[in-house]
Design a protein around this nucleic acid. Structure first.
Length: 267
DNA sequence: CGTGGGACCTGAACGC
DNA sequence: TGCGTTCAGGTCCCAC
């Protein structure tokens, strides 16, 4: 579920509670969540360490614990929040990290796609991820949206090209830039590349302001819902009228992902 | 290099 | 009510 704005919202919500906390023992209710680690290895180095900070890189959540990091990816249905119990009444908790003051950092994930891992440094993320879109200017996208015949939608979802864009905000940005998702990247004009860059930045920034999109699973760390889904223009609106031209919004499959667009507005 | 398919998983929604 | 099907914000891996 979560794309860059949802992950950013989770990080911002957790930061005040996590920074300065003392880590305790970790529990893996579902061992597969640890991605190759054993709980014993994790518990040999983490308890007693100070949680210094938390930040986002792409869709990864990076929590600095002592000299290393706990890295969390929410994938489709992951949630991260502070709880006063390791499980509570949440039957989907897969991992919990004890904290001081009888608190727990709980990672809940119905589909078991998400992962929690511990690393010495974050360099490995740089081999997987392109630049952060919110640090870019629209004109930077002239260079980024190049060198491929792939469909521009598929290209936007490639985390090595741009980090953090997912299925929803790719569709939304393409609609606002009036570009069909199927257009090969190499056939875009520089004007279109800049326009798309501007809209990627705008769509992500706006979604952060709305604190993410709650469609089914996503929740803010305090349990409340985001508002971003109320402002979608094409995502999930196949068969409905386009709010710009009143034409019918269509849904197709592109790169095995549901893709929503307005054939009249997007060229 | 790019794409298509499948795998990884569970739950919700929908059709009959 | 119940069963079967389809779909879902993501990423990785393999065959072609």
């Amino acid at each position: 579920m979560p794309e860059l704005p949802e992950v950013e919202t989770v990080v911002r919500g957790l930061a005040p509670q996590l920074s300065g906390a003392i880590a305790g023992e970790a529990i893996a209710q579902w061992p597969g969540v640890l991605d190759g680690w054993s709980l014993a290895e994790m518990n040999a180095c983490i308890p007693g360490q100070v949680v210094e900070s938390i930040h986002r890189r792409g869709k990864y959540i990076c929590i600095k614990v002592g000299p290393g990091y706990l890295v969390v990816h929410l994938r489709m249905t992951g949630r991260l929040y502070i709880s006063d119990q390791p499980n509570g009444d949440d039957k989907w908790v897969r991992f919990s990290l004890g904290l001081d003051q009888n608190r727990w950092l709980a990672f809940s994930d119905a589909r078991k796609f998400g992962r929690v891992t511990a690393v010495d440094d974050l360099n490995y993320l740089e081999t997987k991820l392109g630049p952060e879109p919110l640090t870019l200017k629209p004109t930077d996208f002239k260079k980024i949206l190049q060198g491929s015949r792939r469909a521009v939608k598929t290209f936007l979802l490639d985390q090595k090209r741009i980090a953090g864009v997912g299925n929803i905000y790719a569709d939304e940005a393409l609609f606002r830039a009036k570009i069909l998702p199927t257009r090969p990247v190499d056939e875009l004009s520089d004007r279109e590349r800049t326009a798309l860059g501007k809209e990627v930045i705008a769509v992500l920034s706006q979604a952060i302001n709305y604190e993410g999109a709650t469609i089914s699973w996503y929740r803010k760390p305090d349990g409340s819902q985001g508002e971003s889904q109320k402002h979608f223009t094409v995502y999930g609106k196949g068969g409905q009228a386009c709010e710009v031209c009143s034409g019918m919004i269509e849904k197709m499959v592109l790169g095995q992902r549901g893709t929503h667009y307005c054939p009249r507005c997007q060229k």
